[in-house]
Amino acid sequence: MKPLAEEVAKKRIAWRIAQEFNKTESPLFINLGVGIPTMVADYITNNQVFLQAENGMLGLGPAASEEKKDRMLINAGRIPITETPGCSFFDSCTSFGMIRGGHVDATVIGAFEVDGEGNVANWIIPNGKQLGVGGAMDLVAGARQVYISMTHCTKQGKPKMIETCTLPITGHGEVDFVVTELAFFRFEKGRLLLEEIAPEVTLEELKTMTLAPFSRSQNFRVMPVPG
């Protein structure tokens, strides 16, 4: 198979995760990280999905247009955003109380690595240039479900789903779902299951790009992709 263009891959991942949330019939509270996770918001069509930002807001609207920008109304990635009817503001303790207390249904985050035991590494590459953990550890430990959204391999073609994380981990055994442009995986009782595979890739090809051991789910199917 030919690798997908990066933008196509990212859109596919964001769209696929949004479909999971769009299924909800009751209010669903979601925290989105930066990068691909932010793009998930573009594909949410269900008005029962509410976005939470850890810097103290529930009910985030889309990014603000140039004329509507307010520097004091931002998401956790410092992007100026907008309000929605019924949105609210609160302090950082209340915000992380929502997260740690299990009131936030899911978080979508990016990752450098995910391993076969459901560990995720997404906060630091120890190269001496970064010092920061932010809310990542609170989110993976506190949110009821953790979705990893990432391209299947690095730009150099190195698999990101590996046997054991080599980078410092963000959380231990916290990952529930991994969505890449090639596949949809789910962790069940510590086992990694392949739920869906992208239309243009074979199982054999996927295995060569996935170093974490996995087995096929009973509901295994071809991954729906945006039209």
Partner: peptide
């Protein structure tokens, strides 16, 4: 470095007379 939610809660704890608390954030890291 302190995880953000732990940082916020540790500051609150200081303010409300709680010397320490237990949290899940950062376990195993």
């Amino acid at each position: 470095l302190v995880p953000q939610g732990t940082f916020a809660e540790a500051v609150r704890a200081a303010g409300v007379g709680i010397p320490a608390f237990y949290t899940l954030s950062g376990v195993g890291t």
